[in-house]
Design a protein around this nucleic acid. Structure first.
Length: 828
RNA sequence: GCGCGCGUGGCGGAAUUGGCAGACGCGCCGGGUUUAGGUCCCGGUGGUGGCAACACCGUGAAGGUUCAAGUCCUUUCGCGCGCACCA
């Protein structure tokens, strides 16, 4: 093992400690509004305070910090805050298992993580730190909830909800992964509970439309959100039910197939089912069927492999197009919470209906002719779902099915039996949680007034402290002696508080707005301050938040915008989804035993090396394979920088203005200018940190080469090169650069030092090597003056005689000229 | 099943609008420094053939467009991700 104390390895420990202390004591990272300067709001997704910093965090924050330091050098007023997504289940589990109060556990973890973040040298303005579990914060989360309620966007509804028997709480649809609990992995069941919902579906269309405005977001994320919102267009159509007063309304995306309906299906939970079957011979069967289905987990219920099963309920509906009477079924493949909870079944043209019809021997009536010899409409082997020509469709026969879609929709509208309709897959957001460690829902139930919000001046509704953590039963808040009893804010009578808390996704749906005015005790934030800072110019975090967090944050921002509170209706202008950190090809995890602790790496090589490696090994949005050798390489590079600066400092002492001498000077100057340009473009543009670092490495290599080969070292050029090297490297490895900067004789901090300019002319000065191709294959090289146009390049190539030599004995058809790049001779 | 993305040396990865494939780093080979090893410095490193100059092949596979293809088009295979009975 290497012995770091020998061999002139730089003393990163002392240096990093020294500069961290200086930064802290001088308060350079403190940020205030400055209307005279252009702002840049840079934000990394705030962490859950688990107490353990992992490499994913280090990567996330290193990416952000390079950008923050770079933009500061570019003259922006940079807001770069940090906080804690501090409510959540792990704290409560700790309370249940170890008897530690969630508040204590969380506070300790925050302190622990703050201590682990310290050594990384990040530019956070800690004066703006926030934690979502702080009453001064959740007070405003409650305030937002009340605003939702006042505008009719928060409501309570009894519904079968996802229930995790292990965590003993309900889960949002989004927290059910493959039918299992996102947290514990157990299968999720169903339960009827009174739950609070937010009407996010009111915003579905805007959430969808405005994605088009988010040019700085990855297409992948936008697509995932589009799919999640899931807009479908079609029609709602009313079918009469024989011997029943009400009509059955269904939603379909295929009005063109209306003539092909041979049966109807209701979701078993559909309210008509009971009415239609109570007191009939079908009642018992329906009850048994429904009961069986309810015992299934969502995983099984929603699986495409689950065999379709259904039951005739003894009634018939009438097709409004052709008067055909069709039987009504209930079946396990129709969902109550999408569309109207009822469908028309067209087995000839829908795969699911086809399967069901085959199983139960129902009619299959084709109405779209594929006009394909290979398909026999009289004997379909599977549903035909594509377009074709309408048949068996009365007056619409012969029409193209795409036109038929519109024509039939128009027809049903005219006759008043239906309307065109749009449906979204997105559901309203269930936010109630039967948990302690979350924001209390600030609602009070009064026997006379119903649900009434707590008065805003009484916020926050504090989490009680006299609570037992048993991990069993309902919300732990029920165990508090003091919490539940309340006075109705409306009538002053005795009332009861809501005992559920909010989904923690609410807490994180607006924190970026609070950062703009974190100390405000009068209002949620000042719109004036938010106007200066919002939107977040660059948001950085993991793809795992592509749907939920980012959709909810957009929803909240739009809501606050509609209230006139938020100055923007989209929170994040640009989004970077960073890749995972892997080891041996797998995600680092305790169970695989392939974790690398950031603390150990920093202890051994320093924070600068850790940052450099993480940024160099892979582009930020891609996965990063951890490599101990690679870390050593980064460490080696920093030592190489350290040595060359130390060595050349003497030469450069007291140098004057730069005058370029011979070819060696010119080459070094070219590489210097190229590095400045490349690093600036790569950080400022696509976050190409890996290629930016490689350009700096080339610059360092050029300095070593220059040192050995230059006949008469140009002191001024060397001084300039060293300064620029330190400047452009400093966003990546700030500690070592501050130290070198000081050693190079500067007395100001590098933080916010002006980013060096480059000379476009120096990039292309002198000669240029041109590739000479014959029929597209490289056959020779030619040095010409750079900046020649096509004519000049042609003349130079002809003068050199190389064209005649390469094309000897062949007929030249034409010559392709690409200035500064190549000449291609096309011969026969 | 549907949708999206990606396949480049031994490895991580480069390659503006199609214009010298393999920058930079890791690893490996050789040389220098050193009593020796390590560190450090210099050089080499896609494959095949050749002493060599050089030639041919080469970006998952097969076709195509083009003076020119890692890059564009078609088909196909492999991997990854997202959604998944959404009517």
């Amino acid at each position: 093992m290497r012995d770091r104390n020998n061999d002139g390895v730089y003393d990163f420990k002392a240096i990093e400690e020294k500069w961290r202390t200086r930064w802290r004591e001088s308060g350079v990272f403190k940020t205030i509004e400055d209307p005279g300067k252009e702002k840049y709001y840079l934000l990394e997704m705030f962490p859950y305070p688990s107490g353990k910093l992992h490499m994913g965090h280090v990567r996330n924050y290193s990416i952000g910090d390079v950008a923050a330091r770079f933009l500061k050098m570019k003259g922006y007023n940079v807001l770069h805050p940090m906080g804690w997504d501090a409510f959540g289940l792990p704290a409560e589990n700790a309370a249940i298992q170890n008897g530690i109060h969630p508040y204590v556990w969380t506070k300790d973890n925050m302190a622990e993580m703050r201590a682990q973040l310290g050594p990384l040298g990040l530019t956070y303005d800690w004066d703006r730190e926030l934690a979502t579990c702080d009453p001064e914060y959740y007070r405003w989360t409650q305030w937002i909830f009340i605003q939702f309620f006042k505008r009719g966007l928060a409501y309570k509804k009894k519904n079968p909800v996802n229930w995790c028997p292990s965590c003993e709480t309900v889960l949002a649809n989004e927290q059910v992964v493959d039918g299992a609990c996102e947290r514990c992995g157990r299968p999720v069941g169903k339960r009827d509970l009174d739950q609070w919902y937010l009407r996010i579906t009111d915003y579905a269309q805007r959430l969808l439309d405005d994605l088009d405005r988010l040019g700085g977001w990855p297409e992948k994320v936008k697509l995932m959100q589009r799919n999640w919102i899931g807009r479908s267009t079609g029609a709602e159509v009313d079918f009469e039910i024989q011997g029943f007063g009400e009509k059955l309304r269904i939603f379909t995306t295929r009005p063109d197939t209306l003539f092909g309906v041979t049966y109807m299906v209701l979701a078993p939970e559909h309210p008509y089912v009971k009415e239609l079957t109570d007191g009939t011979e079908y009642e018992a069967g329906v009850a048994a069927f429904t009961d069986k289905l309810r015992r299934l987990s969502d995983m099984d219920r929603n699986s495409t492999t689950l065999e379709k099963e259904g039951l005739f309920i003894g009634r018939y509906a009438v097709n409004p197009m052709n008067g055909r009477e069709v039987p009504i079924y209930i079946a396990n493949y129709v969902l109550m919470d999408y569309g109207t909870g009822a469908i028309m079944a067209v087995p000839a043209h829908d795969a699911r209906d086809f399967d069901f019809a085959v199983k139960y021997g129902l009619d299959i009536v084709p109405v779209v002719d594929p006009e394909d010899e290979a398909i026999d409409l009289g004997d379909l082997k599977e549903a035909f779902v594509a377009e074709g020509k309408l048949v068996n469709s009365g007056e619409f026969d012969g029409m193209d099915s795409r036109e038929g879609m519109d024509a039939i929709a128009a027809d049903i509208e005219e006759r008043g039996v239906g309307t065109r309709a749009t449906t979204f897959r997105l559901r309203d957001w269930l936010i109630s949680r039967q948990r302690y460690w979350g924001t209390p829902i600030p609602m009070i139930h009064c026997g006379t007034c119903g649900w009434v919000p707590e008065k805003e001046e009484n916020l926050p509704v504090m989490l009680p402290t006299d609570v037992e953590f048993t991990g069993k039963g309902e919300s732990p808040l029920t165990t508090s002696k003091s919490f539940r009893a309340a006075i109705c804010p409306e009538c002053g009578g005795p009332a009861e508080r809501e005992i559920d808390t909010m989904d923690t996704f609410l807490d994180s749906s607006w924190y970026f707005l609070r950062f703009t005015d974190v100390l405000n005790s009068e209002e949620i934030f000042s719109t004036e301050k938010a106007k200066y800072w919002m939107a977040v110019d660059q948001y950085i975090g993991g793809v795992e938040h592509a749907i939920l967090h980012l959709l909810y944050a957009r929803f909240f921002t739009k809501f606050l915008y509609d209230m006139g509170k938020s100055p923007v209706d989209e929170p994040f202008s640009k989004l970077l989804t960073q890749g995972m950190v892997l080891k041996d090809g797998a995600k680092m995890s305790k169970s695989l035993g392939n974790t690398v602790s950031p603390g150990e790496i920093i202890e051994r090589y320093g924070a600068d090396t850790a940052r450099l490696f993480i940024l160099f090994a892979s582009p930020p949005e891609k996965e990063l394979e951890w490599s101990d050798r690679g870390v050593e390489g980064s460490f080696r590079f920093l030592n190489r920088v350290w040595r060359i600066v130390a060595e050349l400092k003497g030469v450069a002492a007291g140098a004057g203005p730069v005058v370029i001498g011979g070819a060696e000077d010119r080459e070094l100057d070219r590489v210097r200018n190229h590095a400045i340009k490349k690093v600036g473009d790569d950080i400022g543009g696509r976050f190409g940190f890996n290629t930016a670092i490689s350009a700096i490495m080339e610059f360092v290599n050029a300095l070593y080469k220059y040192k050995d080969s230059a006949a008469a070292p140009n002191a001024a050029l060397i001084a300039r090169s060293i300064d620029d090297l330190i400047l452009i490297l400093s966003p990546f490895t700030p500690h070592i650069c501050e130290e070198l900067w000081e050693k190079a004789g500067h007395d100001s901090s590098l933080y916010g030092a002006p980013w060096p300019a480059y000379d476009e002319g120096a990039l292309s000065s002198g000669e240029r090597e041109i590739v000479i191709q014959v029929n597209g294959k490289v056959k020779g090289k030619l040095n010409v003056a750079s900046g020649l146009g096509e004519a000049g390049l042609k003349a130079a190539a002809e003068d050199s005689g190389i064209l005649d030599r390469l094309a000897a004995g062949k007929e030249i058809v034409k010559i392709i000229l690409v200035p500064d790049r190549l000449v291609n001779i096309v011969v026969k």
